[in-house]
Design a protein around this nucleic acid. Structure first.
Lengths: 346, 346
DNA sequence: TGTTAAAATGTGCTCGAACACATAAAAAAT
DNA sequence: ATTTTTTATGTGTTCGAGCACATTTTAACA
């Protein structure tokens, strides 16, 4: 077992005082060449790991992190994110970090902008946000960056050099997985990709999934599939989808690119004459209901709780343990069916 | 933002000294009824959370945890466990816990017994072990218990009132998932369950999986499957399996209950005249190779790394944060195909 | 009432890092 | 050579909890 060295140990070994060692460690200057050399020699020889307890105890500074999440009252998808943040909060409650959650309305751009302004006025050290609105998110992040506030994002990918970290999934790959599962279920036939509410939910999200989905089938040898795309908005949703299915009786499989597969399931459950394979996203209660009665065949789990949790801990550990911020954390893409669904609730 | 109270704060509020508050908090006695009442009144009013940094800094006691894992030189399955423990070790290196890994030979009962004796001689505070050998594990755990050493297990379930915690998967459910996937792949036909090296690897593991597997098909309406069981040991493995397959030409699917699916894949890959569906366990390199060339259709991920990690952190957090030890942590059962396999490496 | 024992309470040091401040040594200016 | 300035180095306090020890208060007994 290797010895744990303290600053005092180093001071004794180098024949200087702990003050000098401290100045060397923190490069605060005011150290003679001679002393610098002596201390560095000791430092090279041993593996000094500062005691983080002591450091955290001494430092009065409280790091503040703001988290912007869509309000789960508008969309239950976001509830696990809130839970994930609260879990991180609990875990690090003894440390000198303050985590505050700000909710915005996912259907309202102005709510997003406004919430960002509120966050800005609290002058946090870092912001973790779901960049639902592309342009507005970029703008907000630029402002944070100019004020020296670290920004991280999760759920949606977003290209900007001002972003320090992204937590999410490889959406292209996610589309490929959906394709592979439908391939398995059907072997051949006509499949439709269904995009619901493409407007305010981030379109890139869905497009990447579609690309991956199509990529799988394009690269398939002896491919016997036909792929269609269907876009629809919520108000006229029900009638439009019915029409679409009636007009395309050959369709045997559907890939819903959002968490709204239950809305589709509700409609196709009423067409028992023909089983349509259905794949969607996320373990919402509504979705699970249709998974259990086998209207939905597979769900792909985006693990929003863990995304939020990892987004938060990535920042927290940067502040209190001086860990480097991982610029990209890609979560595994979990395949869910009736049998393993309940495992994913903790 | 709620104020963080210290012992000093409480002392002032109650009009006593911090020594008295300390005695009340730790129930060390020597406190008058009057003082006890005054302190408890304050304690009821506020939410006191002791500063764990300060506590950890002060306490000189180093908690020692020993981890017993099979040597990965014998079976690569165990390497991720070692990685998981090292990750936990790294994460908590600043805290006063010492984690030591002890490796034993998974093919040798006496190696397991001997290693337990070595562990015992270091008089640790807790032991985390893979109870590969049923009887010997129970014995070892009884001894640990009699010496006041906490024991936790992972990977294998084991019933004993002396065990404080189990981390693993629901093996019955795991068997059901394999069944569901084969159902999906085949729709009907003959399937064989393959148990490899049932002797020294824990038999219960495989039996539970078989039970779940059969349960799925038993409860299936209009079932058109026939299920066989095939047990085999390594030396004569190759020839015996070939024979079995030749004798049962109807077999269209195989469920290998261990991480040795690649050994089966090696054989059926040479029979290209008929595609046999194959499902196995664990993301070993050998398995992934056959997954990628589609000889193996699905792998079920038992997440050994996370099992070990959670087993360790469960104990660590008990010691340093006084968290309760979760008596059972069941990990989700991850379904892996070619498309999402690479996600599961971190 | 005075003395001793027992119980209750308070004080002060420690853990290791951080940093303000005091002191000492070297360099520069008179 | 002496004073002043600059630079280097050391000392001491703080953070909050834990615990040993000192001190005070109360109870018991002669």
């Amino acid at each position: 077992m290797e010895k744990i060295y303290t600053i005092k140990d180093i001071a004794e070994l180098a024949g200087v005082s702990k003050g000098t060692v401290d100045r060397v460690l923190h490069k605060r200057g005011k150290v003679s060449e001679d002393a610098l050399k002596k201390v560095n020699e000791v430092l090279d020889k041993i593996d000094y790991q500062p005691n983080l307890m002591a450091r955290s105890l001494k430092k009065k500074q409280i790091y503040s992190i703001c988290v912007l999440i869509p309000d789960s009252a508008n969309d239950p998808y976001w509830q696990p994110c809130i839970d994930g943040i609260n879990e991180a909060k609990k875990e690090f409650k003894s440390f000198n970090v303050k985590i505050e959650i700000f909710l915005f309305d996912p259907t309202s751009t102005s709510s997003f902008v406004e919430t960002n302004q509120n966050v800005l006025s609290t002058a946090p050290d870092a912001v973790l946000l779901v960049p639902l609105f592309h342009k507005e998110a970029i703008d907000a992040i630029e402002i944070y960056n100019s004020k020296g506030i670290i920004s991280s994002i999760f759920n949606n990918q977003l290209k900007s050099s001002s972003i320090r970290s992204f937590v999410g999934q490889d959406l292209f790959q996610s589309g490929r997985i959906a394709a592979r599962l439908l391939d398995l279920l059907l072997r051949k036939g006509t499949i439709a990709i269904v995009h619901i509410d493409e407007d305010y939910e981030n379109a890139i999200h869905m497009q990447e999934k579609e690309k991956g989905f199509r990529d799988y089938f394009n690269n398939l040898e002896n491919a016997t599939f036909e792929i269609k795309t269907f876009k629809v908005k919520h108000p006229q949703f029900k009638s439009t989808l019915k029409e679409f299915l009636d007009e395309n009786p050959a369709i045997e499989g559907l890939f819903v690119t959002t968490s709204k597969a239950y809305q589709v399931a509700k409609i196709i459950a009423k067409k028992p004459e023909k089983k349509i394979a259905l794949i969607g996203y996320d373990l919402l209660e509504n979705n699970l209901e249709y998974l259990n009665n086998k209207t939905i065949d597979f769900l792909i789990h985006q693990n929003p709780k863990r995304q939020a949790y990892l987004g938060a801990t990535n920042l927290i550990e940067h502040f209190i343990f001086e860990k480097e911020i991982s610029s990209e954390i890609l979560l595994p893409i979990d395949i869910i069916n009736t049998e393993n669904a309940k495992d994913y609730f903790l």
